[in-house]
Design a protein around this nucleic acid. Structure first.
Length: 258
DNA sequence: ATGGCAATGTTTCATTGA
């Protein structure tokens, strides 16, 4: 099974790119973030024609997440939101796809470490960590994929000194990420030897992408049974090239059959 | 082997993202 996560930064703007990427890569499951679409405007028909069933929860302008499942896969138990955490923002959707519990998540950005948005981000992450504990008890084969808005350590940052203590890299955010791993999940990317300077996001400004000034903030975390089946975890930086790219690149895992 | 912010709505600027 090939499982992918991609923050598309507006599905309306990025639909053609998404369709091209799906055709070229044929993932089984595609998790999306920042669709920025109300549910009535989700491009169900275009994705259906491309061979994918869509499950989504969205809102105007901000946030919005989805799980696309390739035709032929069995999807059950679609659920949105976080257990025990009231949230107006549409940031979480889950579905069981061929026996694997898949969660597509869009962690709040946090804006700056002294902001209300940052405090919301930390409480949101704590709620998700608790949610994961329940979800893992119910679904031993679980993957949470998405834009975590955290660079887990300095290997994930092009210029650690520049970013030290800043939002996306601060110690409390990194601790929140470790709290996910403490529930028994593995950062799939670090299951393998990786080349240096691999990132998943580059600022649109100041030539960040051609200069290689990025962060690895999009992740796929795997429960032990899935980590044992994981044979690759990569990021497709080619998707950041060309006309009107998302500022994020897709993260990809391949799982061998159980 | 890429391109100097982008997307959205509140639209001719403000807000948010990361």
């Amino acid at each position: 099974m090939k499982l992918v996560t991609w923050n598309v930064n507006s599905l309306n703007v990025r639909l053609e790119r998404l369709l091209a990427w799906l055709a070229a890569n044929v993932p089984d499951v595609m998790c999306l973030q920042e669709t920025k679409l109300e549910d009535a405007k989700f491009p169900v028909a275009a994705l259906e024609a491309a061979g994918y069933a869509s499950h989504f929860t969205g809102q105007k302008t901000y946030n919005g997440v989805a799980i696309l499942a390739r035709h032929g896969l069995t999807v059950t138990d679609v659920a949105t939101g976080i257990d025990g955490f009231v949230d107006e923002q549409k940031r979480v959707i889950a579905a069981t796809v061929d026996g694997i519990r898949v969660i597509s998540a869009y962690v709040p950005n946090g804006q700056s470490v002294d902001s209300d948005k940052y405090r919301y981000k930390l409480s949101w992450c704590e709620a998700v960590a608790n949610h994961l504990e329940n979800a893992l008890a119910q679904h031993p084969a679980l993957a949470i994929a998405g834009d975590f808005n955290v660079a887990p350590d300095d290997r994930d940052v092009h210029d650690p000194a520049l970013w030290a203590g800043q939002v996306l890299c601060s110690a409390p955010e990194r601790a929140a990420f470790q709290a996910f791993l403490a529930r028994g999940l593995a950062d799939s990317f670090r299951l393998f030897e990786q080349p240096p300077n691999i990132y998943s996001w580059w600022d649109y400004r100041q030539l960040a992408f051609p200069k290689g000034r990025g962060l690895r903030i999009d992740h796929i975390l795997l429960s032990p049974p899935l980590a044992a089946r994981c044979v690759a975890s990569t990021i497709d930086r080619n998707a950041r090239k060309g006309e009107k790219p998302s500022d994020h690149a897709p993260a990809i895992v391949e799982l061998r059959d159980a």
